[in-house]
Computed example of a mutant assay.
Amino acid sequence: MKKLLNTVYITTEGASLRKDGENLVAEVDGAERARVPFHMLSSLVIFGAIYISPALIGACAASGITIVLLDRAGRFQARVEGPVSGNVLLRRAQYRVSDAPAEIVRSLVVGKIANQRAVLMRALRDHGEAFAVERTAAIESAVDRLAYIIARVERKDHSADTMRGSEGEAANLYFSVFDDLILSPSPDLRWRGRSRRPPLDPINAVLSFLYALLTHDCRSAAEAVGLDPAVGFLHRDRPGRPSLALDLMEELRPVLADRLALSLINRQQLHASDFVTEDSGAVRIKDDARKVVLTAWQERKKDERVHPFLDEKAPLGLVPYLQAQMLARHLRGDIDAYPPWFWK
């Protein structure tokens, strides 16, 4: 079974990483802060200016440990890995299906919208009594409209492009009421619409950070089962973009990322003072607050839910790997369709 906590996140700028025997050693100002055996690692995620020794890079490549480099804001910069092994027949099937991806696109879009709808319904159940009438009405209207879009996407006469349009429509609707889910009284912690590169407010900064972490996990999951992370179905191919990882991420981010961001804000684990606005207008999370987010992210991945297709409990952190396996089984012809993961 894939270990869930075998990803090490390095967030202290100025830290240095080196190899000592069969161990990763992290040092700050010359003092050893952590030591982890290579056999317990599958990947390193490094934020900002951190030194990595050439010997460590070589050892990670030889041991199949991926090094992911992100900037201080969590944006992807580079990925260092050794020789990639994979099932050539599986990848050939993936490439063929990517030319006519309508059925897989349908599953991905239905899964994403259903989970967005579940997030809104959960907010009504948990906080509906505290919401103003107007807020409740707006969320209920969005829930009903998302149900209509799901029913439309499930019809078999829609092309992949039409379903991509429906996915965009659902995303706009979902985020139009996202501010209604925020309970913090701080005027600086409000939702003003999605902004990506760069994020222009604290909520978007948290979402972008969490999406970067989830994309990393989904890319690792795709590679773990022998799929090509660059060739997707919902997301079109583009040089340098891990389209399949973004596909796998879509149905998971409402639950793993969006709900976590809301919880951190609503429980006042993050405050307006935890963010910095750069001269460019970009908003980034301060280092200490980023550690709070990472800790919450790892704890969130431990939560267990029943997988709707396998009918077995699984930690949320394992879901990207299970979904990648389901996709590989479908591409091989072992199952008739790709089963999306529904949060309940």
Rank of each mutant, 00 (worst) to 15 (best):
D99Y: 15
R135L: 06
E103R: 07
L294W: 02
D180W: 08
A102M: 12
N87D: 15
V105R: 06
A137R: 06
S107N: 02
A132L: 15
D258M: 03
E169M: 12
R164H: 06
L5E: 15
A102W: 13
E27W: 04
L260T: 06
P54K: 02
R155V: 01
R92A: 10
G232S: 00
A314P: 04
R284W: 14
T215C: 08
P37L: 03
L207R: 09
G64K: 07
S53I: 07
I50P: 05
V119W: 00
D217A: 14
F275C: 02
L331N: 08
Q94M: 09
M326H: 15
S43C: 05
A100S: 15
P320W: 06
L248T: 05
R79L: 08
R236N: 04
I67V: 11
D161R: 11
A337W: 05
T215M: 09
A26M: 14
E32N: 00
V36W: 00
P320A: 08
I182N: 06
T11K: 06
A31Q: 15
K313C: 10
V143Y: 08
Y174E: 04
P308S: 05
Y148G: 13
L246I: 11
F275Y: 10
L316Y: 13
I265C: 07
V319W: 01
R267L: 07
S166D: 12
G226P: 10
M326N: 15
P229H: 08
S186H: 11
S141K: 09
P340K: 03
S280L: 09
V283G: 01
R284P: 03
A147L: 10
S243P: 06
V119Y: 03
V231Q: 00
E312V: 14
R92F: 03
L270F: 05
A257L: 02
S263F: 10
G111E: 01
V109K: 04
G317C: 07
K301C: 01
G193M: 11
D334K: 07
A314Q: 04
S16D: 12
I65G: 12
V110W: 10
L90T: 05
L322R: 10
V110Y: 04
R290N: 03
R300E: 13
A138I: 03
A205V: 01
E140D: 07
L248V: 02
H307M: 00
R96L: 04
L4I: 06
I113C: 05
F275L: 01
V25F: 11
L56S: 08
I285T: 02
V68N: 10
E299H: 15
A123L: 09
A296E: 03
E81R: 11
H307A: 05
P202Q: 02
R300K: 15
D20E: 15
A160F: 04
N172P: 08
A142H: 00
R96T: 11
G30W: 09
E129Q: 10
A102H: 14
K2I: 14
V283C: 05
Q77P: 00
R329Y: 15
P242L: 13
L260M: 02
L214P: 03
S98K: 02
L189A: 08
D334T: 10
P229A: 01
F275Q: 04
R329N: 09
L318C: 02
G333Q: 04
A93C: 02
F76C: 05
A147R: 14
D179T: 00
D258N: 00
E154I: 12
Q77K: 09
M249V: 12
V306G: 03
V133C: 11
R75C: 14
K302V: 13
V68R: 13
H307N: 11
N172L: 09
A102P: 07
L210M: 08
